[in-house]
Design a binder for these strands. Structure first.
Lengths: 147, 147
DNA sequence: CCTGAAAATAGAACCGC
DNA sequence: GCGGTTCTATTTTCAGG
């Protein structure tokens, strides 16, 4: 992981479908050299994959909410989250509420029915999102010799 | 937005760097047809972009945390979030805590100094993430005539 | 939405540092 | 190990139907 890798990742963060040749042009390096660096970043697991960023509202997902859960059975809850398409993220927490999940639903009604099911796993507190000033922002990259 | 668009998006969700020709092969459609569908999805804003998914830990970001904030000046806080590389997401909420932000830092120490700055904008509650059973999961896609 | 040709791109083999 | 050159296969783009 050096400055060149950092530049490559920065360009891929801006547009993950940029061509390898185009990256090469922008950082003054030949296409095969860039290609092999990208392959190595993938092999080392620094690049985990490439995702398309969709507009949730244009796909009918109007409601975003965070649900805090106080559960005693994390395993069951994790399984439930994996099976539920509404769940976009799930994180285990330290503290009184030991779980937070991020959900997206079509309407308040579907959110409500989801919450009903969710409450089987523990006490819940729901916070609905009014607006998202920043979402899916890029990770800052530091250059370290180790990685 | 029809079933074909849904299939294309599903394939792009799995790997946003898949070639257009490969998508065509998988859904039995010629490459130019797929290419134009993708272009239209981009033009309509359904596809907002393509992101590389990085491993935060391998980039030195060991700590993930959610911070709930009770602020009276959303504008300043939003500006602060935009300027802070630690902030990955920021959402305005309904309820007592009117803001939630997701941050990633190198260490507890950097998280702590970030929290110190953050507290200037209002009362905060921090929840550190122990593990993430699911992160950056794909949005489910519904086929509607309108979009 | 398909076909077909030209341009651009990706991947592999090989060379030199 | 790392990058450059060259060659080949694949992909993209753009014409026309």
């Amino acid at each position: 992981m050096d400055q060149i890798d950092a530049k490559i990742i920065t360009l891929l963060q801006q547009n993950a479908r940029i061509s390898i040749s185009q990256i090469g042009r922008l950082i003054n390096m030949t296409q095969p050299a860039v290609g092999e660096r990208v392959r190595k970043l993938e092999d080392r697991g620094i690049i985990k994959g490439y995702q398309v960023v969709l507009d949730p509202e244009k796909l009918g997902k109007q409601i975003m909410a965070y649900i805090l859960i106080q559960t005693e059975n994390c395993g069951n809850l994790v399984e439930f989250c994996n099976q539920s398409p509404e769940v976009i993220e799930a994180h285990q927490l330290s503290g009184q509420f030991n779980f937070i999940i991020k959900v997206m639903t079509e309407s308040m009604q579907t959110l409500n029915s989801f919450l009903h099911t969710c409450s089987k796993y523990g006490f819940t507190t729901t916070m609905t999102v009014l607006s998202s000033p920043t979402d899916t922002k890029a990770l800052p990259i530091e250059i370290t010799e180790s990685n």
